[in-house]
Design a protein around this nucleic acid. Sequence first.
DNA 1: GATGAATGAGTCTTCATTCAT
DNA 2: AATGAATGAAGACTCATTCAT
Lengths: 206, 206, 206, 206
Amino acid sequence: MPKISEEKKSARRTQILDAAWTCFQRGGIQGTTMDDIIRQSGLSAGAVYSYFKNKDDLIVSAVTTSMTGLAEVLAPLLAAEKLLPPAQLLEAITKAISGFTARDGFDLKRIAILGWGEAQRNAQVSTALRSSYAVFREHLTQAARTWKQRGEIDSSADPADVAKTMLAAALGFVAQAAILGEVEPAMLKRGLTALRASATAKSSAT
Amino acid sequence: MPKISEEKKSARRTQILDAAWTCFQRGGIQGTTMDDIIRQSGLSAGAVYSYFKNKDDLIVSAVTTSMTGLAEVLAPLLAAEKLLPPAQLLEAITKAISGFTARDGFDLKRIAILGWGEAQRNAQVSTALRSSYAVFREHLTQAARTWKQRGEIDSSADPADVAKTMLAAALGFVAQAAILGEVEPAMLKRGLTALRASATAKSSAT
Amino acid sequence: MPKISEEKKSARRTQILDAAWTCFQRGGIQGTTMDDIIRQSGLSAGAVYSYFKNKDDLIVSAVTTSMTGLAEVLAPLLAAEKLLPPAQLLEAITKAISGFTARDGFDLKRIAILGWGEAQRNAQVSTALRSSYAVFREHLTQAARTWKQRGEIDSSADPADVAKTMLAAALGFVAQAAILGEVEPAMLKRGLTALRASATAKSSAT
Amino acid sequence: MPKISEEKKSARRTQILDAAWTCFQRGGIQGTTMDDIIRQSGLSAGAVYSYFKNKDDLIVSAVTTSMTGLAEVLAPLLAAEKLLPPAQLLEAITKAISGFTARDGFDLKRIAILGWGEAQRNAQVSTALRSSYAVFREHLTQAARTWKQRGEIDSSADPADVAKTMLAAALGFVAQAAILGEVEPAMLKRGLTALRASATAKSSAT
DNA sequence: GATGAATGAGTCTTCATTCAT
DNA sequence: AATGAATGAAGACTCATTCAT
């Protein structure tokens, strides 16, 4: 038997990471034991440990993989060309998150929450999330500049502020959906639009 | 040691809860051991266990207490009388969160994130958070109605949608601040204002 | 407040011992905590510890007291004067045990079993039981001598053997009643009588 | 370490149960800590816990195993064919108990006493003992019927009463031997015989 | 004298990780 | 290469006993 092929190896890693997320969703990250993951993956303890150095390594990989997957889904939405206006973009982003979510029975929203918590005690996870979100925020800042150019937001606006507000809305959607529920992308679009539209009355009144 | 006074008892509980939060911030909720809390509190294991039935009880109490404290801080902001306009309210809420935070050396934002994660595996924590946030969202819905009456938001807006958007922004501020940092209440006020102001151009164009 | 009277002291000791037995019956001797006994007795921890040096002291006292009480009940049955024949004596003894039992809601049979087990790990309890039973066996040996004189048992019989057999039947009643149930004093009388009566046929046949 | 054979597994269980009994005899059931058993068995904590779910499971297994072993030893004595007369059967049974006892350095009599005590607080142990003894009593009832047919006991005897008396004598032997000592199977045979023989005089007198 | 809060050593149990087969 | 039994340190929790008030 020759060495296992790279593909097989990658498939095994995915299999283990999938098992890990299934368990994490069930019982939280720290609440999941290696044995839970081992049993869920259908592999042996030794096998799992040949793919991941230890539990923390597995956790970091799982979180990083999720972030990477999400980034891929969001990237096209942030491309300058077909950039949507703020409320529509917010809807598109939250839809993408919910959609990614639906895949494989995983709920990315709950997963994200777990990752945020884990980042509080695991420096590597913290760094992974940090850089992902930093990139995302940077893209949003760029988007804000575009909106400004297009006159879709106030000409005196600081793109960084707008980006932070948009990011807050997106992350807040995740938190709200995971904890309270009863929030849908369309609601945020309408909510943000209402807030924006109101400005008309306000500003025209002023 | 004859019967201890009710105040002393309450002080001891607070002492333990403070120790717990200090430890939770340091190492996460699940990552904190009872021994960590016991040592931090300066009491003995038996003493801690005479105030809290077990680790979960302590966790639930810690989260619940935080939520209650926060609710008290936010309540006056949501009173109908002196209700601020959306962007200003968002700034006030996030300031209150950051301020509450500063007290006692605890960072409520990080604490909130930990609570969200814990809610994924602890039904009692989940319920406690749920009901707190539900009340908060309800207050925001009422606020949205007031804004509508005052003509500060679109007359066709669904107050529930606006409330959810505001809640998302607030929760998202917490997440963003805890993970990425470099977000301040004033930025969100300006960001939301910019998005609103832009609407003028937009809506008049439409 | 002058010193507490001797009577009061004795009453307190009894109160604690009663509480102890109530608890022991509920959860076994080792399975009972001092706190169980303290709560059941209605006294404070300090009070209980002022009457008994420690848990073992309390256990030894509880067992010893029971044995003493039982001995008092059995003594009259073993007096030479009105000594009953074997089967009737066995019935009387087991009845006395069951009766003593009924007092105060305690089941002496279950208590005895617990004492036997405790004697396996507690030298003092072992000694207390040993001497009580030794005395009882000695009395039975004396009874066997009387039966022999009266011609109620085989003239060649060793009184010690007969005493041991009678003691076995009595202790076995206790064990059987505590574990299996459905044994009554009268059954043993009839059973022993049947075994004896059978001898008639047997011996006359021989 | 690939899959261990079924035999090895069973051997390990026996190894642990042996260690448990050694410890139980030394310090009682509740007085024995898992650590005692773990050290005595020569295995690690994890290993012991992979064979027994928890301490109670280990206790129940230990007691059940003993009862099963004893039942096997007694079974042949109760077979209808070569059924001994009462006094001889009592001797044979108590001899079997003492003999089983001698094996492996365990004293089944002391073990039985511990089991009886444990049954007072552990429902599973209670059930295990109950059913074992119930079967044994049933066998004795059958034996009594045989004796009746053979004319070895009174023709008007209730087999159930006789069985209960025999069982009492056997259990009582165990208790007396464990607590007081100086009882041997032959003594009970002689004692019961003496009581029976005496009946001749008595019954003829009556 | 009495009280009952506090102590802290000791228990049971889990679980990340290893390594003999 | 893979397996899964074994390890043992570490964690949660208990409880006999004390002693400040």
